[in-house]
Design a protein around this nucleic acid. Structure first.
Lengths: 222, 222
DNA sequence: CATATCCTTACAGATTTCTGTAAAGCGATA
DNA sequence: TATCGCTTTACAGAAATCTGTAAGGATATG
């Protein structure tokens, strides 16, 4: 079983809960915790430099911001930076998030090894997930495998995401076109943007831009 | 110090975290836990009938619904029912909720004795809160006393909320006008709607409707 | 009663959105 | 080279948004 684990979770009590389980139920000896992404990153890097690296990272996704200014503000950035240094570290995300799209994204884009939804059966799910990941399995959460509607997913490419973000920030299509031109992202004609957004209308059954952004926000994709 | 405490929290891991703290840091001997409101209520009533009542209830507000059908679905109902039987029991709410209005409501309407926000310093806040409540104090969360920005809040009236909701659903102002007319809500001219929405633009510093809805979604008001 | 203030409504015009159609560009294939 | 399929772009028109100005109505105050 894993012997050295890093837990990144800003909510102290959840943090303690995870540690209690790792200790009592799984018997992992060396556990370190961090309440901030940056702290987690520093602990990780120190361990890596000292040649006693962590084998597993258990992290939340969202970290509340407070007085301490952080360079990393979400678990995703933490995963990215840590994987940059130690690509083979196992990563389990433990989060409130239960939207299939978002969770799938984590597996596809960030190659996480497991996901556990905060919830009633989190203890069993977590221990189960750690077991599986230790055996090199990819551990999807029940919410994802149960649900058949995971297949109804809409695939969004990079440009789709850019458009959604810019629209949500209130930019007009003219402004977005200029931005894309500046950054040499193609296609960048107003017509192409129109087409792409119209496709998003179809995909998400939205009536107009405002509706679209509201839907995408609700789905947690933005 | 309290000797018999009931913890109602559906998230197992947070549940375990609370128990760990009550055990390790405060030294409370008799702790019972419940993952469902109804369970909590039954445990409470049994203890009360057996003449060894709980002295303190620590409860979450929101309980996720699952296969088990519950008569009580939120901490508020639990508090109400328990206080009905044992009015002098101390109650601490431990929840994600950080909106001043909502928290204040709990103190005013349900006479809770303390409130702790789930968050980075929850452990210290929780132990501190329990101490205070034991000394018969009313323990407001820091978020409520610290924050001066509670006053900076934008006040949204009913019509504002209706407009935001309808816009987020993708309805045009013409459609919204007709809906308001049907429901006999005034003002309902397109001009008045324009004016009200323009004010919201100012309040939230939004560039257009799409931006406005995105902002309001992010703030969790919608 | 006169006046000030606030709220509602009407309207106008510049801009933007949304939805078509059609043309141009480009790679793959025979 | 010719043709097919796909993507990008151009353009156009109806609808909706956004931002003014101004007029009408209700209420309060002196």
């Amino acid at each position: 079983m894993f012997t050295k684990v890093l837990v990144a979770e800003d909510y102290e009590i959840a943090n303690q809960g995870i540690i209690k389980i790792l200790n009592d139920q799984i018997g992992i000896s060396h556990i370190e915790e961090a309440k901030y992404c940056d702290d987690a990153y520093l602990k990780f890097r120190k361990a890596h430099q000292d040649d006693s690296p962590f084998e597993l990272l258990i992290t939340d996704l969202s970290f509340k911001e407070d007085h301490k200014v952080q360079t990393r503000t979400s678990g995703i950035e933490l995963i990215r930076d840590i994987r940059n240094i130690q690509p083979d570290i196992k990563v389990i995300v433990y989060s409130q998030e239960d939207r299939p799209d978002k969770i799938n994204m984590l597996f596809e884009k960030y190659n996480i090894n497991g996901y556990v939804c905060k919830g009633q059966d989190a203890i069993k799910e977590l221990t189960n997930c750690i077991d599986g990941v230790y055996q090199e399995k990819i551990m999807f959460p029940k919410a994802l495998t149960d649900n058949t509607n995971a297949n109804q997913m809409v695939h969004l490419d990079d440009l789709d995401m850019i458009l959604l973000e810019e629209l949500a920030k209130g930019f007009t299509k003219k402004e977005i076109r200029l931005k894309l031109k500046e950054q040499k992202i193609t296609p960048n004609s107003e017509s192409s943007i129109d087409k792409k957004v119209s496709k998003l209308f179809d995909d998400f059954k939205a009536k107009n831009t405002t509706h679209l952004v509201a839907i995408v926000k609700d789905l947690g994709l933005l």
